[in-house]
Write a protein that binds this DNA or RNA. Structure first.
Lengths: 267, 267
DNA sequence: GAGATTATTTGATGCAGATCAACCATAAGC
DNA sequence: GCTTATGGTTGATCTGCATCAAATAATCTC
């Protein structure tokens, strides 16, 4: 496996490559993807996996590279970014505990997106070869992979629908309502990511996001730095016209959508 | 299965519900999705499946409805459309032989897109319940489902990247080059779909598509109705900056991307 | 904590692309 | 064949959003 050595050479000194710790296994095991897997297979995967700490702003992988590892965010936050011709855009931000680049690993082909840490993060990396061997051997794991991929696909369909059908004001309003819903309809929450990143995810410029937020202050939203407060839910709802076929959730209350991480509720 | 009866009642008189014909089975069997399946399982699926002819412009299913059937286009052409708040957009057009709404069937939840025939079409419908039972029973089929879903996911990621990273002129130029590539770099081809549909797929209005095509006439493209001819590939390439991570193909020459069907070469 | 970065906001301006409206072309119906 | 839809083009105009520029605010560094 050339991939294995590469990663070791590349990061060993700065980040400290480790095998997966006993204490972090239960959290990974609890993921829908690994939950139903045979214990022996899970242990095998963990044995060949690496676990590393990365500093913020570090490129974990670049689009176009061959997919060597399934990545699991155990701690921290990772941005999935797409680049083309000097432009770039945020496709998703994943927080603990979830996986990314599963599809590329399965197809044994190039990553379509780059990934970089947004904050200090702990990432578990499972070699793609072993991953593929695992679900060829374990039907329950194969089932979990199927369900995971179907969910990822649908969440990307939603992202595309959102972009094609709504304008940026509507997208922002829908985003705000969605974050609130993820916090049990809390009226206030703090943004889970920087505004420039949110802007990119929503397909707009930071300037436009800033102005659009100001606009929404007359439509039921109060903005205070990273803290947003819904002051008139009805008005915002009229504007966003939330739709489960765009905003989710897929099924009631499963909420581990791929997209942006959940915000934290606030007074 | 309420779904079964419903479809029979709904379409019987006009379209003629049939069981899958012997003669169309081999074509379906050849699909990557069904190719490696155990023969007994394939036969079972075909036994419970329906096969119907539909007239053009007929709604096969509506977004939001529970996913009762995996659909297979055996003949004709089907548009996958997304709707929201009175607006609508084309997400993909599928031709023979391929499947759609696999992910919704697997998650046993609502369709995210509506589907309607663009021309007279023959559709095979496999009950979602039986489909799920099939890959729970057949590991080879499960593998094929995994690969299919991974491909669908990646093709939707590409669609989103295309929308977020390129402007409409670039998207059109890239589309033209891609169609040419699918025809062995043929300089000319006829559009596989109406222009209004292409416009919607590319995320622009018909008026804008028309004008953009005219613009491209000074950048190496000749437009003659449905027939497009590349007169200066270098110029178009400079404009589109084709990228396999957006335009495909995923792997060399597999070319059954979800997106728009292949054009026919001309000239 | 002073200085240096980096994120955010605000303003001025430009442009890509939408919208509205009319006209032309192609195809379908009788 | 003429007529009627429907799709496509063209023109005029409008506007949402990007871009460029500069000021503030927040965050990091030493």
């Amino acid at each position: 496996m050339p991939g294995h050595d590469m990663i070791i050479i590349k990061y060993h000194s700065e980040a400290g490559v480790r095998f997966v710790r006993e204490q972090e296994k239960p959290d990974i095991r609890r993921l829908p993807l690994f939950r139903d897997m045979a214990t022996a297979n899970f242990e095998t995967l963990m044995q060949v996996a690496y676990s590393q700490n990365f500093p913020p702003q570090l490129d974990l992988l670049r689009q176009g590279e061959p997919a060597d590892f399934l990545h699991i965010v155990v701690e921290g936050m990772v941005e999935l970014r797409a680049e083309w011709g000097g432009r770039e855009t945020t496709m998703a931000v994943v927080g603990p505990i979830s996986t990314f680049v599963l599809a590329a690993c399965i197809k044994d082909t190039a990553y379509l997106m780059s990934a970089r840490t947004l904050e200090k993060s702990r990432i578990v990396m499972v070699p793609a070869v072993d991953l593929r061997a695992a679900f060829r051997r374990d039907p329950d794991f194969a089932m979990a992979v199927i369900v995971d991929l179907a969910g990822s696909y649908r969440s990307m369909v939603r992202h595309a629908k959102n972009l094609k059908l709504r304008n940026s004001r509507e997208r922002l309003a829908a985003f705000v309502l969605r974050q609130s819903a993820l916090n049990g309809q809390a009226p206030g929450f703090v943004l889970p990511v920087e505004k420039r990143l949110l802007a990119s995810y929503l397909g707009m410029t930071p300037e436009n996001l800033s102005r659009t937020m100001r606009q929404l202050e007359s439509e039921g939203l109060k903005v205070d730095g990273q803290r947003l407060i819904i002051t008139d839910r009805a008005a915002l709802t009229a504007l966003a016209q939330p739709d489960p076929l765009i905003d989710g959730p897929d099924t009631e209350l499963t909420a581990e959508e791929l997209g942006l991480p959940r915000a934290n509720a606030v007074g």
